[in-house]
Write a protein that binds this DNA or RNA. Structure first.
Length: 259
DNA sequence: ATGGCTTATTGTATAAGA
């Protein structure tokens, strides 16, 4: 790691086609080193490489039409770019990784799961098991590793606006939280919780029911850091500003600074 | 209130998100 401080962020943009102006404005106001995007919802041929280059960012993208799609934007060179989870046969574009500044950056869009007793929930469980297997090997290869993205899991009750109403539901169910615990047991630390944070801090709010205005949200977007990086973390914040704009994504960026 | 919103689709209603 040569560049310090080093700032990384994650943001589920819910269609980069719609959100590109917000992303470009945000990067202008927050000239960070690395931004990971989820739900670009476009094929590689539609990805706005030129606009991002003009803004000073290189980009790698694993996209598909309509659904999913992940990208890493970086001011610096990216090497060893890898798509997907090795060992998992998966059509859905949910993982992209690259090495930047001596750090393995793994951008993930974890399966939503829809409802606890659904086929999609079982896919979420299988997918997470494969992710964990793969990550254990990646961590051995890359001691400096950051796993960031939309996890679609609120790890604790304090990450949910109304835990009583959500008991057992998707995003908070015990099996999902067990999977999150298995990820942290690999030696990955939730950087947001390394610091004192405001109560009721969330990264996603439902578009419906005036969710954002009432702060009816969830903290489901996370930046996890490996043991080697834990003590170098300087701050982790949720930037709610983009959620206040016209036609926002339902998620807002999470930003980590490594000293 | 099992959705009151937003996105994408070669659409004109449906699926999916979380």
């Amino acid at each position: 790691m040569k560049l310090t401080p080093f700032k990384l962020a994650t943001w589920n943009v819910n269609s980069l086609n719609v959100r590109l102006p917000h992303v470009l404005d945000w990067l202008r106001d927050n000239p960070i080193d690395v931004l990971c995007l989820q739900e670009t919802k476009q094929e590689d041929s539609k990805f706005p490489y030129a606009d991002l280059k003009e803004a000073g960012y290189k980009a790698v993208h694993a996209g598909q039409k309509t659904y999913n799609g992940v990208a890493i934007l970086s001011k610096h060179d990216m090497t060893d770019v890898e798509h997907g989870i090795a060992g998992l046969d998966d059509e859905q574009k949910r993982v992209i990784a690259a090495t930047i500044n001596g750090i393995r950056v793994v951008c993930v869009y974890i399966v939503n799961g829809q409802a606890v007793d659904s086929e999609k929930y079982e896919y979420k469980m299988r997918w997470l098991a494969a992710l964990i297997d793969w990550l254990s090997g990646e961590l051995k290869k890359h001691p400096n590793l950051v796993l960031l993205g939309d996890y679609n899991i609120a790890p604790e009750d304090r990450d949910c606006h109304d835990p009583a109403a959500w008991i057992g539901q998707i995003l908070v169910s015990p099996r999902e939280r067990e999977m999150f615990a298995k990820i942290t047991a690999l030696g990955l630390h939730d950087s947001f919780r390394l610091f004192e944070q405001p109560e009721k801090s969330f990264s996603w709010w439902d578009y419906r029911m005036m969710g954002f205005r009432r702060n009816f949200g969830m903290r489901i977007d996370h930046i996890l850091v490996s043991d080697a990086l834990k003590n170098k973390c300087e701050s982790c914040i949720i930037d709610k500003a983009p959620r206040k704009l016209e036609r926002p994504s339902d998620h807002t960026p999470v930003v980590l600074t490594i000293a």
